[in-house]
Nucleic acid binder design. Structure first.
Lengths: 194, 194
DNA sequence: AAGATAGATGAGCGATCATTCAAGAACAAC
DNA sequence: GTTGTTCTTGAATGATCGCTCATCTATCTT
């Protein structure tokens, strides 16, 4: 009996995610989203009760579910090893150097902009960091088993360092997208694995 | 002949810096600054032509000039070596774990929040990163000379990695101020220096 | 004491913020 | 075609944004 929806909530959410990714939470207004999607405020609020913050949290989840796996690529596969870690870092550098990639990572941006004041957002960020740490650890364990890195390597500890390194890479890349600089960071991070 | 100023511009700037540091650029309103300083909007704008953005850029400079040297400590001394780098990292961890230190570093926050849209702010951040890189490089060169790290170490490259690592440390620490995690990052960063 | 100079004041500017809601519109069921 | 239900619409809400300016006040000079 009801009147059918004229827009796809996922499409709206995707547009919201892109805006939050590009400009951050505070700098993205509801009117921005109305313009970007063509969906009027009333419909937006009835489709996403909780308003802007709900839209943001759902954007974070969508990012984790759709964007992150694409960036991680084979690094999440059970056979991942040094090459896949390297591939992930190279992808980050490539993104930071491209005009569209300057926005960095929505979850890193959120860690800085919102984590301190919104624990629900911080929890999504923590989940992401844990996920990164998990697959880095696993890839390093594979690497040790295959003799690709030095035998006594502390996989769990090195994974934590690698996670921090890629977060730092994005901070540096955002202020100074210089290829030689970013490559030096990545090269030295790998040199340390021996 | 003129009526004398009733407030010290540096005092106002200091209060502004603390607010921007704690909450970021967008989340800090002029009214916040008026409340924090007792100086009314008119006086604020006449003392700082250019308004909020000028106040912000001058806050960045003040932070570089007063806060950063205090955090770097002996790391900027010409005799600095591994111990001073370690001291700097330990200070970062201590800050991130303390309630007052959760705000992280104003310049890292700025890199994420504003560098992409404000090149003048980005330039201050780049200057900070270059300064960090410079004193890390110098300290590593001293360390090589003293045999505190492995002989063939690429000081310039390792310094770039260490700079990225400490930026990453602050991103991770902001979302997840967990002592064991942060210590693991620092320990592994130093293990890599051999 | 009067005049000149510059800082202090705060009401108020137009713009924009996130959000709401009364009214109209589109469909399914009958 | 009528009714019931949900969706769409966009004007309007009050709050807040960064900022300005006419007015007042305090000091120095003479």
């Amino acid at each position: 009996m009801p009147r059918p929806r004229e827009f796809e909530p996922d499409t709206v959410l995707n547009a919201a995610m892109l805006r939050f990714w590009e400009r951050g939470y505070r700098a993205t207004s509801i009117e921005d989203l109305v313009k970007a999607t063509g969906v009027k405020p009333g419909s937006l609020y009835s489709a996403f009760p909780g308003g802007k913050r709900t839209l943001f949290l759902k954007s974070l989840e969508r990012y984790s579910r759709l964007v992150v796996p694409q960036k991680l690529g084979e690094l999440e596969a059970s056979g991942a090893s040094v090459a896949e870690i390297r591939g992930y870092f190279d992808g980050l550098v490539r993104d930071l150097l491209s005009p569209e990639g300057r926005q960095g990572c929505l979850l890193v941006n959120t860690a800085i902009e919102k984590a301190a004041e919104d624990d629900e957002a911080a929890a999504v960020v923590r989940g992401h960091l844990a996920r990164l740490e998990r697959c880095m650890t696993h890839a390093l364990e594979n690497a040790v088993r295959r003799g690709q890195v030095r035998a006594g390597l502390d996989c769990a500890g090195s994974a934590r360092l690698l996670v921090a390194t890629c977060q730092g890479l994005m901070v540096v890349g955002k202020a100074n997208p210089d290829e030689a600089l970013l490559r030096a960071i990545v090269d030295n991070a790998f040199a340390a694995l021996g």
